[in-house]
């Protein structure tokens, strides 16, 4: 028999295999929810799909008379804006710092230890400082995400750039490339796919920081809403919101992956494991 190591699922079978555990979990939930409702029809902990649909209709289709906006839309917009600005700023900073530290011995000597030090500070611990410095508005939340993910991304990109074979860097110089052109034409294009990967990995922590900041001080946002309705044990809102957040995360991840695959074709092996 073939080794388990070498047996690979193909095509439809692969999709089915991926869906199976999810289907099992959903089924388990439905069974548990049924059981609880059989015992207590007013159970709030494991709401039925019908109850969730009913609550979400209010959240997703009807305008809140107080704000004049649909809550789910307003929350999504607010959260994605914060996330987008913070992650965009982190990526831009990472490009500049990562390329400099990876390529230039002087930048490595000057900035390497600083970035290494900052990256060991737990970001949530500096949240109070951010609230004191930037107030309770948007800035503090964005800065929290930024501070939370940037040091890791910079270190990752710098080590990736530093690992570009010395041969390539020397070859570029023998072709007349200046430091600037080596950075722009040799290092930058090779750094981009790694940066996109790094953003994909950092989005997980970024969501954590976003939701934490929104839970503590906000009046709109996906995290804010979840923590608001928690007071009423409104699982029928929390669960669909969590599902929505997960869906957003998956979509963003897929968009980034697609971008990387189309714009940086050379970096992706055709038919490879990734």
């Amino acid at each position: 028999m073939r080794r388990l190591l070498n047996a690979r699922p193909r095509g439809g079978g692969r999709l089915l295999l991926g869906l199976l555990p999810i289907a099992i979990l959903v089924l388990l939930y439905l069974v548990a929810s049924q059981a609880r409702h059989a015992e207590n029809p007013r159970d709030k902990i494991l709401p039925t799909p019908a109850a969730m649909a009913q609550s979400m209709e209010i959240m997703a289709l009807q305008k809140d008379p107080r704000t004049g906006e649909i809550p789910l839309v307003a929350d999504t917009k607010a959260s994605l804006t914060r996330l987008g600005i913070a992650v965009g700023a982190a990526a831009a900073t990472t490009l500049v710092l990562g390329l400099s530290i990876g390529l230039l011995p002087y930048a490595r000597a000057g900035l390497g230890p600083l970035v290494a030090t900052i990256s060991v500070i737990p970001p949530i611990a500096v949240l109070p400082i951010l609230f004191i410095v930037f107030g309770l508005g948007e800035t503090a939340k964005i800065v929290l995400i930024f501070v939370g993910i940037t040091p890791f991304m910079v270190r990752d990109l710098a080590s990736h750039v530093a690992a570009i074979p010395e041969e390539q860097i020397v070859k570029a110089q023998t072709l007349g490339a200046s430091t600037w052109l080596v950075a722009l034409q040799v290092a930058l294009p090779q750094a981009m796919p790694r940066l996109i990967d790094s953003v994909r990995f950092s989005l997980g922590p970024a969501w954590v920081f976003l939701i934490s900041a929104e839970a503590i001080a906000s009046d709109v946002g996906l995290g804010y809403r979840i923590f608001l309705v928690r007071r009423y044990l409104a699982m029928d809102i929390i669960l669909p919101y969590v599902a929505w957040i997960s869906l957003l995360a998956v979509i963003i991840d897929l968009l980034l992956l697609t971008w990387s695959r189309t714009a940086f074709r050379w970096a992706h092996a055709p038919g490879g494991r990734r």
Binding site: P165, E167, Q168, V170, K171, A172, T174, V186, P189, Q190, F264, W266, A267
Partner: peptide
């Protein structure tokens, strides 16, 4: 000009 045993060309 130079040619090394490996890594002499730009993969991108």
């Amino acid at each position: 000009g130079v040619v090394f045993q490996r890594y002499s060309v730009f993969p991108h």
